[in-house]
Amino acid sequence: MSSSDIFIGETIGTAVLILLGGGVVAGVVLKRSKAQGAGWLAITFGWGFAVLTAAYISAPLSKAHLNPAVTLGLALTGGTEWKDVPFYLLGQMTGAVLGAVMVWIAYLGQFHAHLTDREIVGGPGAQDTAAADAKQAASSAGPVLGVFSTGPEIRNTVQNLLTEIIGTAVLVLAILTQGLNNAGNGLGPVGVLVTALVVVGIGLSLGGPTGYAINPARDLGPRIAHALLPLPNKGGSDWGYAWIPVVGPLLGGALAGGIYEIAFA
């Protein structure tokens, strides 16, 4: 497996992951979408199917890590060579940004309808336009940031960080115990399916507090895209929170690697 295979596989796979995962959130959240209001179950299963599809596509090239926390856990347990880690990370971040841009393209009309709605962003005819505009400008998270990145329901740094650590540790440990740390071609079709179901389970059980990033690239790449894309009235990208869905999953991946080495290796 060459460095170019790793980069291409992770770029394509992570782009598909974000396209389908961010796409289901856009479908549920944005106005004038046929899926609007479909709810949390649709989002969690949508992300699970996104993982399934992305992993099947990228596994032949890169073993389908799709997640810096997974790459770290595998490197710590000997399943990935450290020299390959930069190519995994670069591919994952590149793919995450590209996937987020594709979500924007696919839902361009819905983004415009949502972000020009007076009930959401204020405007002429609102009861107090100046107050509405000031409130939006002061907001740390814009009205469609949730399509791109995660955010907590209750802002508590320790709780939010621990939630991401715990959720990611479950994911990475589930992957390691299926044998992806061993030499070979990585997870087979059954392993990919199991991993996708684990992601659904984490979303249903642990996704409520923070939106379960459990993947630094999945959160940071689309957050960068949100900051750069020409979305009207998009508000802030919540950079004050952005470190938690990066550091938390990386710590969770390292924790899972340590547990694996102690209990299973």
Rank of each mutant, 00 (worst) to 15 (best):
V101S: 08
H112L: 04
A106M: 12
L89P: 05
A100Q: 08
A96V: 05
G109R: 15
G91P: 14
V85P: 10
L66T: 11
H112Q: 09
G73K: 06
E81D: 07
E81H: 06
G109L: 15
G99T: 05
Q110C: 05
A59S: 14
K83P: 01
Q110V: 08
L76C: 05
P86S: 03
V97L: 13
T71F: 11
H65M: 10
A100W: 05
A100F: 02
Q92S: 12
F87D: 01
G79M: 07
F111A: 04
V97M: 15
A106E: 01
A64E: 06
I57F: 03
V101E: 01
V103Y: 12
I105A: 12
S62L: 10
N67F: 09
I57S: 03
T94C: 11
L66M: 13
G79F: 00
G99E: 05
K83F: 03
G91R: 13
G73A: 06
T94D: 02
A64R: 02
Q92E: 13
L89C: 02
L108M: 12
T77A: 06
G109V: 13
A75Y: 02
L74N: 13
K83Q: 15
Y88W: 11
G91Y: 13
I57Y: 08
M102F: 15
T71G: 12
M93K: 02
Q110Y: 00
T77Q: 09
V85M: 11
A64S: 14
V97Q: 12
T71N: 13
T94H: 00
L61N: 05
V85A: 12
A75K: 04
L89G: 03
H65T: 06
L98Y: 11
L66Q: 10
F87H: 04
L72Y: 10
H65S: 07
Y107N: 12
H65K: 03
A106R: 10
L89F: 13
T71V: 09
G109W: 14
K83N: 13
H65R: 09
A64N: 01
Y107C: 09
P60L: 13
K63F: 03
E81R: 14
P60M: 08
K63E: 00
G99M: 07
W104F: 14
Q92M: 05
T94R: 02
F111I: 03
T77S: 13
L89E: 03
A59L: 00
Q110P: 08
P68C: 02
Y107W: 14
I105W: 14
P86D: 01
P60R: 13
P68N: 08
G99Y: 06
L90P: 05
A69T: 08
L76S: 01
S62A: 14
Q92G: 08
N67A: 05
Q92W: 05
D84S: 15
E81V: 04
V85D: 04
P60Q: 14
L72I: 11
I105E: 04
Q92L: 10
V70P: 00
L108G: 10
L98C: 10
P68D: 10
P86C: 02
F111D: 09
A96K: 08
